[in-house]
């Protein structure tokens, strides 16, 4: 009889524990955890300027929330809001969680649209470049792929990467990434000595610091110094850029050893051939991006600016 009682008590306790855990897990994942206060904002721009803090009682959170939302929507038709909540873990610091409308995920940072005062000019050259890439560059590149074996193309690509070593080295230094500069230097020495730069055995070595896979350049250095993009610019043939990246590209131009080849046309032909050869991944990427877009111009602009911003951070 005693055994039975012990057994039942054990089962009931386990049952309760499992159940409470399930509840806890549910609450942890559900947005209506204990909500402390709600911050409403009429528009993204003046999120904090006009925001009001509303304190909601612990009980009936969901109802209160919807009621408040309705009230706020009546005042601000396009209002977006952030809910500040504290989870069931009482030790947790309050975290910002976006809620109900789910317009944003966990990043509550307001995104500013890309500054594009020359959109008309840009759109014109974007259309021009698009035609040029797809009707001229792409077929010519297919021909190039036909006449050159893959190892030749890969070799030339590695060679180009290796000759651009000064750009990466200088910009690592300018961003005070001394270890990164060291990695670039040893990679350059290794690849140059092994193969004059036509192979890239150094890329298989583990580095002492995480390296940005595209390498540092002047545009990223300016970004790292806190300089913003400025207006977005689309250049004929060269494609998307910004004022900052254009200035950066001029810097890269001076740091590129091929610039100093004589006579001038050898310099230009070398650069053009090497750049053209390295398009193997760019063309399909371009087609993927613009092919899936409803407005390819905006898609490209957004992707370009985000891509550059991500690399400034890396």
């Amino acid at each position: 009889m005693l055994n039975h009682k012990v057994f039942s008590t054990f089962l009931i306790l386990t049952l309760l524990l499992t159940f409470s855990q399930a509840v806890w897990a549910k609450d942890k994942h559900s947005p209506n955890a204990k909500i402390q206060n709600v911050l409403f904002a009429p528009k993204a721009g003046d999120l904090f300027a006009k925001g009001a803090i509303v304190v909601i009682p612990k009980s009936d959170i969901q109802k209160t929330l919807t009621a408040n939302q309705k009230a706020v929507n009546a005042i601000f038709p396009q209002g977006s809001f952030i809910v500040r909540s504290r989870g069931m873990n009482s030790g947790d610091a309050p975290k910002d969680v976006s809620l109900t409308d789910d317009l944003d995920d966990y990043d509550t940072v307001v995104e500013t649209p890309v500054y594009d005062p020359w959109e008309k000019w840009n759109r014109f050259w974007f259309r021009f470049n698009d035609k040029f890439y797809l009707k001229v560059t792409k077929p010519v590149y297919r021909g190039w792929e036909y006449i050159t074996p893959k190892p030749v193309r890969t070799g030339l690509k590695n060679f180009l990467h290796n000759t651009l070593f000064p750009v990466r080295f200088i910009n690592n230094l300018l961003q005070f990434r001394f270890k990164g500069a060291g990695v670039e230097f040893s990679r350059f020495m290794m690849n140059t000595m092994c193969s004059a730069g036509f192979a890239d055995p150094a890329s298989k070595k583990k580095t002492i610091v995480p390296m940005d896979d595209i390498g540092e350049d002047f545009g990223q250095t300016l970004g790292a110094w806190g300089i913003g993009h400025g207006p977005y610019i689309v250049w004929p043939f060269l494609g998307p850029s910004s004022l900052r990246e254009t200035v950066g590209a001029v810097g890269d131009w001076f740091a590129n050893p091929a610039t100093y080849l004589e006579p001038w046309w050898v310099s230009w032909a070398t650069k053009l051939t090497l750049r053209f050869n390295a398009l193997d991944r760019v063309l399909p990427l371009y087609e993927d991006l613009t092919g899936a877009a409803i407005d390819p111009y905006i898609s490209m602009r957004d992707a370009y600016i985000n891509f550059r911003n991500n690399h400034v951070k890396k």
């Binding site: 995920d105 995104e111 407005d295 905006i298 957004d302 985000n306 891509f307």
Partner: peptide, 22 residues
């Protein structure tokens, strides 16, 4: 899944900038 990020570029954000403009 509600968003995919390739090379840190969010699919949702990329379309959002297009759709807002349109």
């Amino acid at each position: 899944v509600y968003d995919v990020l390739v090379e840190g570029i969010s699919l949702v954000k990329n379309y959002r900038s297009q759709f807002q403009d349109i």
